[in-house]
């Protein structure tokens, strides 16, 4: 099956790794919560891409099923994340994550 795939698997994995690194960089560098959520989306998308590449490599549909599960995880994560973002904005009047670094009971 793998002989039929003309795109080398390594190049696809390299693309996913670069995308994941970009997302990780965004999470670590940016201090705005919206940008952190976007970077998380990039990282989840890179993970889903690895499943698609592996599924294409072995010619099995399992990769796409895992892709759909990651899609639903991303949807749930973004709904809760944006709800938290709204709460942080209402409480601190800012989207800077460093302003929310203290835990209050």
């Amino acid at each position: 099956m793998s002989a039929a795939l003309t795109i080398p698997m390594e190049h696809g994995l390299l693309l996913a790794a670069i995308l994941f690194s970009i997302g990780l960089l965004g999470v670590m560098v940016r201090r705005n919560i919206i940008f952190i959520l976007m970077s998380l989306e990039i990282m989840l998308n890179a993970c889903a891409m690895v499943f698609i590449i592996a599924g294409a490599h072995w010619g099995q549909p399992d990769g796409q099923i895992m892709f759909m599960l990651i899609l639903s995880v991303a949807a749930a994560e973004v709904a809760v994340g944006l709800g938290l973002l709204l709460q942080v904005f209402r409480r601190f009047d800012s989207l800077d994550i460093d302003k929310a670094n203290r835990m209050r009971g």
């Binding site: 099956m1 002989a3 039929a4 795939l5 795109i7 294409a56 099995q60 549909p61 796409q64 099923i65």
Partner: peptide
């Protein structure tokens, strides 16, 4: 397209 195309039918049956 690359060699193997996995269509929606195969995915749905598996899912």
């Amino acid at each position: 397209l690359s060699g193997v195309v996995i269509g929606p039918k195969a995915v749905g049956i598996e899912l």
